[in-house]
Design a protein around this nucleic acid. Structure first.
Length: 223
DNA sequence: CATGGGATTGACT
DNA sequence: GTCAATCCCATGC
């Protein structure tokens, strides 16, 4: 049973998933604001502790090549899941952002396990027998732990099957750093994570790195 | 139709 | 530190 919020709509005590209005904003804002929110899939759930922003005007973004069958989800409605296969092995989960027609998304890179830890361990197999912080500390790991697959590409993050619930309580302290695992536009500090959090992917952001508010390199909305 | 490149992970030296 | 696994899709002929 959850504590009752001041939310005027919906059933008392019920928390509604984030709607399109949350995602239609600039992708850097959404990437930072998703920290502390919760991803739910079936009986498993985790708190978002690491994200990365991607925008069509920088070459690391899949949408940089323009509208193709692959990128159609990215250019589509905000608040939708963009799930694609990485390195032939892993499914990576993104939240589509900005208005329809703009290719932008937030990559969910790490979660703090919240519910269904036992099922997460089963799905992660041998790799799930280690420390709990290794269950969801990486974009490929968390989709495996939550059972998210390519079939969820294009599905609504408000109506499911993958849901993102709003943050409960105060905003955590957030640090920004360079994105990981890319060769193009690698200098942009568009990675966001919870300060001091251990459930994030390596390399860990250095302590004392840009405590938010970084606006250098922000994509112009006119482009 | 053939080819090449990943927004990664886990195993191994 | 190095390296292979494995699939979707963009690109070029």
């Amino acid at each position: 049973m959850k504590t009752r919020s001041a939310e005027p709509e919906g059933a008392p005590g019920a928390t509604k998933p984030l709607g399109a209005g949350f995602y239609v904003r600039p992708v850097l804002d959404v990437a930072a604001d998703l920290i502390g929110c919760t991803v739910v899939h079936g009986t498993t759930a985790g708190v978002i502790v690491e994200t990365e922003a991607y925008h069509q005007q920088e070459p690391a973004c899949h949408a940089y090549v323009g509208l193709t069958p692959r990128t159609s989800t990215l250019f589509g409605a905000p608040g939708v899941a963009y799930v694609y296969r990485s390195y032939g092995i892993h499914a990576l989960l993104n939240a589509v952002c900005e208005p329809e027609g703009v290719g932008a998304a937030v990559l969910i890179r790490a979660l703090r396990p919240l519910e269904g830890v036992e099922l997460m361990r089963e799905r992660r197999g041998g790799a799930g027998r280690g420390a709990e912080r290794e269950l969801c500390s990486g974009p490929g790991r968390l989709t495996q732990a939550l059972g998210i697959e390519l079939t969820e590409n294009g599905s609504s993050l408000e109506s499911g099957p993958v849901l993102i619930m709003p943050r409960e309580g105060p905003a955590p302290q957030i640090v920004s750093s360079a994105r990981i695992g890319i060769t193009k536009a690698a200098e942009l500090p568009w990675r966001f994570s919870v300060a001091g959090e251990e459930n994030v992917s390596k390399p860990w952001p250095r302590r004392g790195e840009q405590p938010r508010g970084l606006r250098r390199g922000r994509p112009s909305r006119s482009g």
